[in-house]
Amino acid sequence: MISFYFQRLVEIFPFFLKGLWMTVIVAGSGLVFGTICGFLLGILRAGKNKVITRLIGVYVAVIRGTPFVVQIFIVFFILPEWGIQLDALPAAILALSILGTAFICEIVAGGVKAVAAGQWEAAASSGLTRIQQLRLVIIPQAMQTILPPLVGQYVLLIKDSSVVSVIGVVELTRVGWVTVVRIPEGLMVFSLVGFLYFVISYPLIRLSNYLEKRMAVQETKL
């Protein structure tokens, strides 16, 4: 019986690869938008304007305080009531981007704040504008602190992307969910799904560990 199901699983494998590809698209898009917006918000969050800092803080707290599945339901079911009708895939990418932005914002703000105040002063004293100071002096140094947790956050976003399966996006988890009806070998099916997630997460985890070690070495050199 098991070998029969195993055979069928092998036949259906391309379907899993399509799901994997969809996961890459959803997670990848969320990752890209989240990084862009996260950097912008993070830089603002590390700034001196208290109103902006507090507003962003509220946004981050709301995102971190509610389950992602609830956020997806809000984007998919509530936005239409306000006139914004989204298909499942755009809604999924939007929700994941909102999630990613909040977490990356905190990582970036932490990195920027970690740069010594003297660096800001030295750059300002040479007559550089605020934007030049950020671009040439502060952000390059902040990247050291930002990169390891940023890559770690990418792994988390890939795992969170599994939740978009609830609104019908046919990514990897959904493929497993749908398959298990026809091939009732839950252990086999979801071991395969898990393994495929591992395959795309593992390179990033290794990268994050490597970056963390490199950062520790750089600190001791200083």
């Binding site: 010594a116 003297g118 002063e121 030295a122 750059a123 300002a124 007559g127």
Partner: peptide
């Protein structure tokens, strides 16, 4: 300020060179 600071050089106690 940028114009002003371009004409003034400032040397800090902690140097603050860009690492």
């Amino acid at each position: 300020l940028t114009k002003l600071r371009a004409d003034i050089g400032f040397v800090f106690q902690q140097f603050h060179l860009y690492p």
